[in-house]
Design a protein around this nucleic acid. Structure first.
Lengths: 202, 202
DNA sequence: GTCTATATTAAGATAGAC
DNA sequence: GTCTATCTTAATATAGAC
């Protein structure tokens, strides 16, 4: 059901994927049930299976394309731009993804915790290639003295870890900060800017 | 079955918890099954339930105490020590936990992704209190000019995020680094030391 | 396209023999 | 303490009416 033809098909497919994202991102693939998804979607269980061949197919539809979206900010890092500004821009866009798409982040995290059975190939291919490419750019900037020297791959890991934490561990972040800070993201953004400036400004 | 009396009880309880950790840390609570745990443990399913009252009880036994272990390194941060050394020591010990107990880290991460239904109270109590206490210490060090100023709570978050990433996203880390680096932890340790030195040295 | 009813398998838990 | 057999419920998926 990748190309729904009618408007009603379009709408129901989206409703199902939206509900599935809600459930899969919390419970993982095995922990989620079609009953839960059907309930959230407000549709009957057989109706779900009219639009998607199986539970696996719904999950697959969510996963495919997710990695691409996730990597877009890294892809956008311009080799001809200003090094520190480019890196800070990357961090900012990645943090915005955590803020605006926390469920997608948790879906991805769930897949990682399970050992990435469904996207292992993409990790070792598409992801690895892009990281290698951008690491080379970072390394060049460091060699030119425009960025303080540091392991470029672990630098990219640190961007992922620090930004995704605010989506994946959202409950913990809010529990610690208390109800005072309704939205932790502005503070997080400031903190991360300071962190990466001090780490990278030559 | 918190206090097994005989040696055989001791041994089987441990075997079950070990197997359960393996499965729960990958699949989460709902995704894991007693069949899987029994298979990994090499015991029959009814035998599992002779030692633990229910699936829930096994999971609870793993979870209880986990938060305490997880917080020990933060607890060990000495208010009378050297600020930068204390912080770096905290980071080092936390990274060692990720290296030596990755499954425990993933069990915790799974619980977070699900919204922490079973440890919400501890997050808002024990965890929050300790973070507040240690944040005050960090703030004092900053006020005394012995640590560069930065949001102390987000600083603690950054330690968690950066160290746990190497356990929770282990598959991704290894996929990106390739088979060349069999053990990413030495490099990670060096990177994190550089990062926190540049961030915090006044 | 959507529903009720249902087939089929899997999962948590228990009974009772040994 | 450990096992086989089994009860009960839940879960994926399908059939077939509307």
């Amino acid at each position: 059901m990748t190309r729904p033809r009618t408007r009603i098909q379009q709408r129901n497919s989206e409703t199902i994927l939206e509900a599935a994202l809600e459930v899969f991102s919390q419970q993982g693939f095995r922990g989620a049930t079609l009953d839960q998804i059907a309930e959230v979607a407000g549709l009957s269980k057989p109706n779900l299976l009219y639009y998607f061949a199986s539970k696996e197919a719904i999950h697959g539809a969510l996963l495919s394309g997710l990695l691409a979206t996730w990597l877009n900010p890294l892809r956008a890092m311009d080799p001809d731009g200003d090094p520190v500004a480019e890196l800070l821009g990357y961090v900012r866009r990645k943090l915005e993804l955590s803020r605006d798409f926390p469920r997608e982040s948790r879906l991805f995290a769930n897949e990682m915790l399970q050992g990435a059975p469904r996207i292992r190939a993409a990790l070792e291919g598409e992801l690895r290639d892009l990281v290698q490419e951008k690491s080379a750019v970072l390394q060049r900037w460091m060699d030119e003295g425009r960025l303080a020297p540091v392991h470029p791959v672990h630098l990219i890991f640190s961007v992922w870890a620090l930004t995704q934490h605010y989506a994946d561990f959202d409950v913990q972040v809010r529990a610690v900060l208390g109800k005072a800070a309704a939205d932790p993201f502005p503070e997080a953004g400031q903190f991360l800017e300071v962190l990466f400036r001090r780490l990278l400004e030559p």
